Simulated scan of single mutants.
Amino acid sequence: MIHHRSGWNFLLLVGLLAGNGVWLVHSQVPFPGQCPEVKIMDTFDVDSYLGIWYEHSKYPFAFEIGKKCIYADYEIIDNATLSVVNGGINRITGNPSNISGTAKVIGPARLAVAFFPGQQTSKPNYLVLGTDYESYSVVYSCTSVTSLANIKLVWILTREREPSAETIASAKKILEENKINQSFLIDTIQSNCPKLAANGTDFGVEDLTEDPVDEFVGTVLPNAIDKA
């Protein structure tokens, strides 16, 4: 619960971030205070992490609004750098799109992912909190805007488009251990998805009626606020 002057300062800062577009660029989930401590993996096998990961769920992220069938593909460039391809399907047009970038290995389970020229790669912005390499990965990023607020991104990635309940339970256990709020997670649609080499997709009826963004705004966010 936010109280008195610090609460008003936080709400004012959120308004400024939204007005300047900073909030929308990074995340739609601001939190009060600075970034909390989280447990990052002590050892990390980059080679075992390579390949395709499908996005199961995430904190709301402006760049992914209106997309389904989202995936990430990591391949080796050299000992310290990976290539990154993030792709998905536009739920309205059915057209695929992707963006390419690089991931610099800063330390064990600490990567600096960049998609644009001049983007900083000296500090990690992709932290792997846990993975078994074969079924799930929990990825976390947090930026302290000031001492008053931080913005977070959280992803649960899986090797299968439709993972088992046991796989997701293992991933969410890592979130629980790090005291990361799961109320803001929204599921990514991974049904009626084409093969990654295809140029189009079937557009099912459920895609027109089940909108995770609308669900977040109408249900998840109010419930999370009530629990704060």
Rank of each mutant, 00 (worst) to 15 (best):
Q120H: 08
V46K: 04
N192I: 04
D207L: 07
A171Y: 03
G218H: 08
G15D: 12
S141M: 10
S183T: 08
V113R: 03
W8R: 09
S100K: 02
L127H: 15
P96S: 03
T201F: 05
N79P: 00
V213A: 05
F61S: 02
L127K: 13
H56E: 15
P124Q: 02
V213S: 03
I186L: 15
Q120S: 14
D211W: 14
D42H: 12
G118D: 01
I189P: 04
V220C: 08
V145Y: 09
L82R: 05
D202Q: 11
L13T: 06
W23I: 04
K172P: 01
L221N: 00
L153I: 14
G101N: 01
K104S: 13
D132F: 12
I186Q: 11
G87W: 06
N20F: 12
K123L: 03
A171D: 01
Y49W: 05
W53N: 02
L148N: 07
S147Q: 07
L129R: 10
L24Y: 07
M1C: 00
N125T: 05
D42G: 15
V217D: 09
K39H: 05
F61G: 02
S83Y: 01
A109E: 06
S27I: 05
A228Y: 15
S48C: 03
N20M: 12
G33M: 12
T158L: 08
R91M: 14
N199W: 12
G33V: 13
T209L: 03
V128Y: 04
T188Q: 15
H3L: 14
D211Y: 12
Y133R: 07
A224H: 09
S48W: 00
V22C: 07
V29S: 02
P108N: 15
T158S: 05
A72V: 05
A198T: 04
D73C: 09
T93R: 05
E160Y: 12
G218E: 08
Y74G: 05
P96V: 04
Y126T: 09
P108K: 12
V138S: 07
W8I: 01
G88E: 09
G21S: 02
L111W: 03
V154Y: 02
L127E: 14
V145T: 00
G7C: 00
I186E: 11
R159C: 07
N150C: 05
E37K: 15
L157K: 01
F116L: 06
V220G: 03
A114N: 08
